[in-house]
Design a protein around this nucleic acid. Sequence first.
DNA 1: ATATTGTTCAACCAATTCGTTGAGTACAGG
DNA 2: CCTGTACTCAACGAATTGGTTGAACAATAT
Lengths: 110, 110
Amino acid sequence: MAEDQLSVLFAALADPTRRAILARLAEGEATVNELAEPFEISLQAISRHLKVLERAGLISRGKDAQYRPCRLEAEPLGTASAWLDQYRAYWEDRFDRLAAHLERLQKGSG
Amino acid sequence: MAEDQLSVLFAALADPTRRAILARLAEGEATVNELAEPFEISLQAISRHLKVLERAGLISRGKDAQYRPCRLEAEPLGTASAWLDQYRAYWEDRFDRLAAHLERLQKGSG
DNA sequence: ATATTGTTCAACCAATTCGTTGAGTACAGG
DNA sequence: CCTGTACTCAACGAATTGGTTGAACAATAT
């Protein structure tokens, strides 16, 4: 299962081919063939990666004759970033002490 | 395949149970049993989720008698956040126009 | 010694994922 | 109309995932 937005999103980002596609789209729209060109895998495989990205809301697709230009839709990345920000204090050095402190507090419970 | 750091990391974050475990650990160390308590799934399933989180570098585990206290290790979240920051310009409104502009630039190629 | 508690390992199953190939569908142009 | 180009759908296989149960093992308590 796991159909929530964040799960679908992170799952989409968990594949290096898909991340490479996003990087390419950051430079501008591209057709499926253009996106497939740098990879060794079949066009069909790319087509399915695009479907995953679309389901995650990370791309949208247009229709221009027989072309299906893809466009980056970055909002979900903002959502992911916001989620990660919950933990920012835990990875930024200045808060390491705070985290350790909170930990000890709740362990000793008094 | 896909054994790179980022892929393993995002894959670890793609499961809601694992994200819930991280949220719990943000409040402090916890044993496997403590972590399992809120969930309906077996202890073994939790144990495997912890293994995934550990492989992603998101937790570390201690040894206290028969207990294996887990601790949040947030640095990888910082890595993920840094990766996302590449795209920040694309989801922040003030840059939407820039993105669209870049797109048009490269399409027209002149 | 034995039992109990905390945790992991191993085998298994169902569902999903990521690739393949082969067969469509949709549009453009001679 | 027929061909070529762009793309998607469907069927398939191998690998992975996320759950299960049953058996281990380690440390504590009796």
